[in-house]
Each structure stands twice: as structure tokens, then as C-alpha cells.
Design a binder for these strands. Sequence first.
DNA 1: AAAGCTATCCTTAGCTC
DNA 2: AGAGCTAAGGATAGCTT
Lengths: 205, 205
Amino acid sequence: MKKITKKNNLQVNFSKRRSGLFKKASELCTLCGVEVAIVVFSPAGKVFSFGHPQVESTIDRFLTRSPSVHNFNASYNVVEAHRDANIRELNAHLAQLVDILEVEKRKGQALDEVRKAGQRQWWWQAPIDELGSSELQLLRNALQELKMNVEKQADLLQAAVECSNCWPILAPSGIGSSGLGSEGNNEMHTSSPLHKFDQSLYFDF
Amino acid sequence: MKKITKKNNLQVNFSKRRSGLFKKASELCTLCGVEVAIVVFSPAGKVFSFGHPQVESTIDRFLTRSPSVHNFNASYNVVEAHRDANIRELNAHLAQLVDILEVEKRKGQALDEVRKAGQRQWWWQAPIDELGSSELQLLRNALQELKMNVEKQADLLQAAVECSNCWPILAPSGIGSSGLGSEGNNEMHTSSPLHKFDQSLYFDF
DNA sequence: AAAGCTATCCTTAGCTC
DNA sequence: AGAGCTAAGGATAGCTT
């Protein structure tokens, strides 16, 4: 379940679900006879509210954490005490959040480092035009080395081809890779890109 | 639909519907990205609340937008207004922190996923003494398979060099991949990327 | 008290008007 | 905009464990 992106649908959806929510709340009030307040801000910033018996009284009861708030003849000492308690509560919440935030920030920094490292380790997977000149140099060297290896392989087979006369039973099952090395090339380029390890390049076979 | 009279059922029912209501609200937030606050007092007088991004900040936004709320209490004066301003200030700070926290949390989750994925995909990159016995077993099997494939490949070439005399036109059709070495290679490459393991595990062609 | 189950009823996304 | 429709999936009352 994700945020609706289509702005058209968003409004309709919000409207439907808001009324659904309010209906559920009203059912809860009817069935259980409880006090409820709901405040919703629409995507457009418009405010909608539902309350039983009243939004304001319920919110006030919540803010002061005091059921007797409705009796406004009550002394304000009580209310003020509650408000101070509320501020202390908020401060505690704040301190807690700051703590969590520190942890999360550290995690975030670690993530950033991982990402940077990832970029460093797999730079050759980036589009060529995003590579720096030193990286291009490395890549060029790697490709040259690759070419040499392919040629070596080709030479071996070439030798075999030139010397061979009779080919025993081996023929039907064939041989590792073709003599011309093209297949080796393809295989290497498609299925096994160059893998870098500890600053030195090497290849799969 | 009427108020439930059975006190036994009332509590269960309230609990179920309250969570249903909060779930609906959370869905509304997810789908529409809106600000919501819900306050419910249970039949027993206990307070439950739901808010996105925070109950207090949303309520505060509501109260700020509806100053008339405060007017229903004639005794609301400058002193209380000042206190409320303090609370609003704290709430603003809180909301800000909560926003940052959301971002950091998402980063943290991403980091955790990267770590998990890393552990799954690249466990063999860890120092050997950090591998469990089952992983060591896997690694040993992979190395044995690799060794066998190398030997087969070598034997093939050896045989070719030693026996071959004439080479009937390098079959354009049949050479591709052999039944033995090459197939084994492919399998091994896809299922066991040994090339990533260790500096010492490097095989030339 | 809390979790799981199920038949029943409700909600809703996407659509049309 | 908003109302109506419908298939598909969701919520829940009452029950058991």
C-alpha cells in the first residue's frame, strides 16, 4: 500500500476513506459510548473533524489529561498543573527523540559510507562517460590484459588445430571453447564482466 | 446499532474496533499522505491516540487554525496563551524532529537491507574465520568443483595436443560448448561466483 | 486478557453517469 | 465534483482455546 500518485484519484479516495473513517468512529461511539475526536487535514490542507460528543472537548480532555476539564468552574491550579505536566511530558518526548535521532543519524552515515564504497567498488558498471580518466586507464589496461588472455587461448587451440590429424572420440563431444576465441569473448563480456578485487584486475574463465 | 450492554463484550469490542479505526486512519495516511489525529477515551476512561505524523502536532495545527476553540472558555487569557505558545513551540520542534527522524529511519532501514543482502550475497567475502561451518562446507565443495573443471579442461587440451594430427575443418557447427568442461564452468559461474572470494583464488586461462 | 477462527456483512477502487 | 454500481478484499461478532 503506497501513496496514491494520481492527483485525480487522490481526492476521491481521500473523500471516500475519510467518510469511512468517520463512520467507523461514529459506530464506535454508538456501540461503546466513548468519547472520540478525529482531526484530518486533506491533501489540499482543508481541515475535517469528527467528535463525540464534541471535537474540542475531547481534544481538551486529551491535552489536559483530565476528565474534569469540562467543569470550567474547577480551579485553574489543576489545569495549570496539568499543562506544566504536559510540557514536561513533551520535553521528555523531545529528549527521547533526540536520542533516537542520534542513533538513526549514525546509521544513516554508515549507509552513506556503504553507498560510497559501493560506488568505488563497482565503478566500471557506471556508464563510460561517467568514468574519470584514471578509471578509464584502468579499464583500458584491463581490456588489454583480457585481449592477451584470449589470444593466448586462441594460440593454444591453433596449435592443436595445426598439429592434429586424427581426432579420437573427443570429436562428438567437442571442445571447451571455439578456436577463434570469439565465443570466449562473448561469454566474458556478457556473462562475466571484469571483476575488480583489491586493486588488481582478474578474470573468470 | 445500539450501545453494547454486556460489559464483558464491550471491552473486547472496543479494543477490536479501536484498532480497526486506527488501522483505517493509518491507511488513509499511507494512501493520501495526510495529517491525522485521533483521540479516544475507552469506556474505562483510559486514553488512546493515533497521529500522523504526531497527535500533538496535528491537534496543534487544528487548534491554531481554529482559534475559536479557545474562546469557549471565557477565562482563557494572556497567561494561558503564553503557555500554549510554549507548547506550540515545543510541538513545532517535535514535528521537525519527527520529520528528520523519518528520513533517518528510512536510511537506517535501507542500510539494514544492504547489510542483509550483503551477508546473503557475499558471505564468502568475509574473513574465513568468520564463516560458519556450513558456509565453509559450501566453499570447500565449490573449490573442489572448480578444481575438477580445471583438470578436465587441462586434460582436454592435453589430449588434443598429443593426439591431434589433422584437424578437419574447424567445425562451424559443433564447437560451441562442450558437454564437460564448459557446461560445468557455466554452472559454476552462475551458482558459485568464486571470483569474488579471495585474492589468492585467481585462475588464468 | 489475548489470539485464532469463520460466517456474515462492510468497504472500497475503478468505473460510469 | 458527486452519486451509483460491482467485484474483490477487508472488518468483525461471537465463539473457542
